[in-house]
Write a protein that binds this DNA or RNA. Structure first.
Lengths: 368, 368
DNA sequence: GCTTCCAAGCGAAACGTTTCGCTATGGCGA
DNA sequence: TCGCCATAGCGAAACGTTTCGCTTGGAAGC
């Protein structure tokens, strides 16, 4: 019984699906009429409509979306290309995007690039053969010379999320990263910090570039000079961030606070601080970025800049559907403000270090 | 310029894609030959192969997957239906599944049911019209009378993840939930707890049922009686869990520890404990479930049962592809062991309460 | 009673592939 | 030299829809 009756394995599974022909036959009408009835594209007598609908239920018909897409020359598929769905920020973005898409009758194809340009290009090829109607894309690379190549290979509407690309003819949705970073660093300065380390992720994408700019802006606004020795770029994961922070902590005149550019980096920095025998926030203050519910239950609860991930995902779909409905005006660039949440990980610097800094710095820090 | 030149808005975007005809014309061969060349289904002279490949590059041809699917009668699409991608456990599962699928040439359609059976059924209908080749499904409901209905409406191979369905003719992949819960509760008992509250999520799905069973098993193994008054089922979110835990804490003989059935619930319980003016683990111990990297940086670091989410996602795809390749043997039910990580959130009960418990309980607890 | 018109329904082409069966070409053995 | 076979390449049908334009029949207008 377990091997003899099964001539072809698949037969039991892939039940022969009913086609529009079967419906037509069952209802005693032509297939054109069934199509017209189901799509409401033509007037059909009430009696016939009922007969068709009955037949549909009877034969268990579900329209073949593949055939529809082929004939109509368009699909109801949206590509969603993200670095990593495991990152809570992108998960929230994806969730909102999927929800908005599905509410409008679209289905989402999920892709994780892992920040790898080769994977990204492979996925783009795949999306092309799948003939997705549009694309929501978080680039692995913001440089114009990179995106220019993509522009000509993508033939459908695109909305960029998180990472923007100057010059690309696409809509984009992102946070006001520079402002978020500026607020976090300003907060640290107001708490009395003068030497503020900056540990950043891959700086080939715009959010990191913007957060770095915000970091500098805050320093400038407080008439503090920007010390490149205090900044580490390109930390791909928390391990890299840990090492970077470790190096900064070994500096003779070590930072009393860290601005970190995302959650992974924040974790690495926190680890480095602890490995160094220091406590947060007693010895070193830290601010995070991205925001997610866990930051507030951490030890200590983390001061972070929160991004409205769900709004970004939702808005991206909104813009994409506008294009799909034919809008051909100038690219729109939507920017949402971040929220800055002060929690336990940022405090005053320890008095003795504040002294040292005051002694060593160019501008003596007023004890606040 | 902004309104007159644009006769049809879409025209600029949806560039007229090259078809196999264009390639054939450019290479000076028939479309049958182009197809044979590209798919390697027939011998083609080396010279011609080169000419065809050149033509492909020249006209920028990408095969129309829609037409291929229609003709071949099968797609390379996999449906992934999960409660909520925002849950780190499901995010990790989805990530692994997508990765495995894409490595084998499949694309993943993402759906979030939000634990809503109506949405689930809507998504199933959608997957059916999209003609997905197979389905990875985390049910909203494990009851046989519910799943029986689904079995007959789904005509493609299915692999259940996380939630299993007794009686359904489908493969499944999940954790050994009962064992994980048993270990966590046993750990609490060994620490000296006698009144252990249980706060659980929706008990209409198998993992929660199994974790409840594990909770009871651990009590029985320690000759502790199961007190239904100490258990709360059906906490859909952390707010519900908070209320449930609050009620338990108001009991005259309150629990000294909580077993929680997932991370959301754990968060709510932790909140309730704090709102009650108690400290974890000094006054109340807590164990979590699901596991995710943030548990270890929480305050306190949480003792949790970790599920191998990535392995589950990976294995699900593995099983699904087996079926797609024709395997028709008995349904396979894969179960992975959990990992139990003891961290800071579980400690001995405070001495005075251990006293009270000893006085009130049926079996005096030996001070360990 | 004839024409005209309209609505309802139908037949067939087309979307871009794959694949089956056919033709043509050339090499080889007898 | 002839016939045969293998092989490269081709033509056309088919997958399940949508849609255009046609037919049909009955009601309305004269």
């Amino acid at each position: 019984m377990t091997g003899c009756t099964e001539i072809r394995g698949n037969e039991g599974w892939a039940a022969e699906m009913a086609t529009i022909r079967d419906v037509a036959r069952a209802a005693g009408v032509s297939i054109a009429t069934v199509s017209a009835t189901l799509n409401g594209t033509k007037n059909v007598s009430e009696e016939l409509r009922k007969r068709v609908l009955d037949a549909v239920g009877h034969v268990g018909y579900a329209p073949n979306g593949i055939a529809q897409s082929l004939k109509r020359g368009t699909t109801r598929l949206l590509g969603l290309i993200l670095p990593d769905i495991t990152n809570p920020y992108f998960a929230a973005l994806a969730r909102a995007a999927e929800s908005a898409a599905s509410a409008r009758g679209y289905t989402v194809l999920l892709c994780n690039t892992d920040e790898d340009a080769a994977k990204e290009s492979e996925y783009l090829r795949l999306m092309k053969t799948q003939r997705v109607a549009g694309l929501i894309l978080a680039l692995t690379e913001s440089a114009p010379e990179y995106t220019a190549g993509l522009v000509e290979m993508i033939a459908v509407p695109v909305v960029l999320v998180d990472r923007v690309a100057p010059g690309a003819p696409w809509d984009s949705v992102a946070s006001l990263n520079a402002d978020g970073a500026r607020r976090a660093v300003t907060h640290l300065i107001e708490r009395g910090h003068r030497r503020i380390g900056g540990v950043f992720g891959r700086d080939s994408v715009s959010p990191i570039q913007e957060r770095l700019a915000g970091y500098r802006t805050a320093l400038e606004a407080a008439s503090l000079s920007f010390d490149p020795g205090l900044v580490r770029l390109g930390c791909r994961d928390s391990e890299a961030a840990r090492k970077a922070a470790q190096a900064l902590l070994n500096l003779p005149d070590r930072p009393t606070a860290f601005f970190t550019s995302n959650n992974q980096v924040m974790l690495g920095v926190l680890q480095a601080v602890r490995n160094h025998g220091l406590a947060c926030p007693a010895d070193v203050s830290i601010t995070g970025f991205d925001g997610l519910s866990w930051a507030e239950v951490m030890n200590p609860p983390m001061t972070t800049v929160e991004q409205p991930a769900a709004m970004i995902g939702d808005q991206a779909v909104e813009l994409l559907l506008r294009r799909l409905e034919g809008a051909a005006d100038e690219p729109r660039h939507v920017r949402f403000p971040t929220e800055f949440l002060v929690r336990g990980s940022s405090a005053k610097p320890p008095p003795r270090l504040a002294q040292v800094v005051a002694g060593a710095g160019r501008r003596p820090a007023k004890p606040s």
